[in-house]
Design a binder for these strands. Structure first.
Lengths: 332, 332
DNA sequence: AACTCAACTGTAACCGATTACATTAGATAA
DNA sequence: TTATCTAATGTAATCGGTTACAGTTGAGTT
């Protein structure tokens, strides 16, 4: 493999001239430039970026810590993140943690050992979080919650949940079931707050039985729905904390002969691609996944490059999307 | 930031001893080991992996070139790939190409400039492919086609397609429509071959009108289905070349009052998570995405580390999954 | 006592780029 | 003519590890 010295020798110039020809050509005479380019072409020289990065003490790479890349909301976010990173000359190291603290730590260590310059965390980290990112490690939280500390890009989970529940209330629903994420998941906490606020303002008492716990997978939504099917006093609407669980729940309801939306309204959260095409299409909240990905990357790069960031927290607007899975409550 | 020399000075040993204490502790005396570890703890030393990688001329990273990470089949594959890479101490650089040749080239260049040690290509590269990976760049093709050159992990697309069409034929269907990928997509080519073989063996003539072209997105499947709805002599079954298009097509059919599977059987390909939960659940072919991800990584690492690989092409078995979207043809 | 050997340690070269600093040549000004 | 300046170039240090090689020590052998 040819190095800058081979090129210099062949071109009859010094290594400094070759280096300058590549990074600041305006400082090099036309003749030298030509000789250098000819030599580069002749030996097929490709600069060793590993050496360059080592010298500049920058990896030009960032880690994206994600609980599960197969989750469509995350993959949309990551696609936008990668796009922006690429524009800025950074690589994206995929860190699929599968929710295990060890793997999170290993990826955080990658930054400490200089293999990456910073981290975008998609895992919702709360105060209670075990592995907090050590100080000095550039980090941006995306998809965080209200209690997230440090730079963050997020949505108003509580407000969005509240508006969704208010919508169901406005359709005449009085008993509204919830399919939640894991109890200690910060998103689940914030969204449940929104639910509680909405029903409280409508003068409806909070019933613990109406909350079914899932884990954001379709399968868990499918199971959670059974809890409602077998109830003596069944809710007439379900607020699911993401689309996948809502889609799973709709399968269960349909299989049990419960029609959607005639007998049961179902709502989701995220607006994944499939929400539009499932049967019936899903009323949901759209998160600006791509916008969030871009902003998270921009914010992280500012931190890495030592630029001041205007605001450390950025709350992006959500969009309310009404489709066919919701209808007015039947008058009984 | 502390370097190995700081640690050596503090511990009262040489840099070589510190280095050895970390990478081959059995070669270092107990006393030195203790002094070194104490010094490391005291100054909070973290080795600079950028320097290590530079010295060893290895990035310990691989690029995964993927047309679209938001595609659920790809994200499953990548999750398994990342898992294996992580086990072996390699990072995964995400290269979402969005199908543009420039971005493919830029990621290939990352390997040439030593920022990565090899490439796993998910983009189906055929002979005609514009940007072939230059010789000397370790590369494994995953999800390739029959004409893929070089090391490859793939499935028998033609055989799988043929068995699916044979199944539809066995249900009594005579007119079987196809929702294809883009005409020049290698998967689409192989799978169409399988379709043609199956109907030819059943003595059915190939009709160009029965082939609708999509692009593997749900939206394109939705559109393609209209082509069949408006036909005077409608097919009674549709072989879609992936699940997403099949799901899109089912939406169209249902919206047009065509019942599935009573009036129309629909089949998919890939067995993505939604295939099981959509309505009706989809008869499809399951690709071993995770197995493929692992094998692709193993194969690439062998190439990178110069080990001989037994076979350069590995064809993995698919699984035929019958669900509720297919039924016998109505006797007319 | 002299020799051999193993275990451990230290010195310094090395990887391939970048870049501070020194040097040279040629143009311009005094 | 000499001083001054600019543009172009070269020399060599540098980044932080790894590792070849040489050296030291002490135990075991003859």
């Amino acid at each position: 493999m040819s190095s800058i010295r081979d090129v210099a020798r062949l071109a009859g110039v010094s290594v400094a001239t070759v280096s300058r020809a590549l990074s600041m050509p305006e400082k090099v005479s036309k003749e030298s430039l030509e000789k250098v380019h000819a030599a580069i072409a002749q030996v097929g020289y490709k600069p060793n970026m590993l050496a360059r990065n080592f010298r500049s003490a920058r990896a030009y790479a960032v880690v994206v810590l994600v609980p599960d890349i197969a989750n469509p909301f995350y993959s949309l976010f990551i696609r936008a993140l990668e796009d922006r990173a690429h524009q800025k000359g950074y690589a994206v190291l995929l860190g699929d943690t599968r929710g295990t603290p060890e793997r999170e730590l290993e990826y955080i260590r990658r930054v400490e050992t200089r293999l990456a310059d910073g981290i975008v965390q998609l895992r919702p980290s709360s105060e209670k979080s075990v592995n907090s990112v050590p100080p000095g490690v550039p980090c941006v939280n995306a998809c965080g919650c209200e209690y997230t500390t440090g730079p963050a890009i997020r949505i108003d989970n509580r407000g969005a949940a509240k508006s969704m529940v208010n919508y169901l209330l406005s359709l005449g629903h009085k008993r509204i079931g919830v399919i939640s994420g894991l109890k200690d998941n910060p998103h689940a906490i914030d969204r449940l707050e929104g639910y509680k606020e909405a029903i409280a303002e409508a003068g409806i008492a909070y019933e613990r039985d109406l909350i079914a716990e899932g884990d954001f997978t379709m399968w868990s939504g499918l199971n959670a729905a059974f809890q409602f099917c077998n109830m003596k006093n069944r809710p007439t609407a379900i607020f699911s904390m993401n689309d996948e669980m809502a889609i799973g729940a709709m399968q269960t309801f349909k299989a049990q002969g419960i029609r959607i939306p005639e007998d049961m309204s179902v709502t989701g959260f995220d607006d994944i691609a499939y929400a539009k095409y499932c049967d019936p299409s899903l009323t949901t909240i759209s998160q600006p996944a791509e916008e969030m990905g871009k902003m998270a990357m921009d914010m992280l790069l500012k931190i890495i490059e030592g630029e001041p960031l205007g605001q450390t927290e950025c709350v992006l607007p959500t969009e309310f999307i009404i489709r066919k899975s919701t209808a007015p409550a039947k008058v009984s």
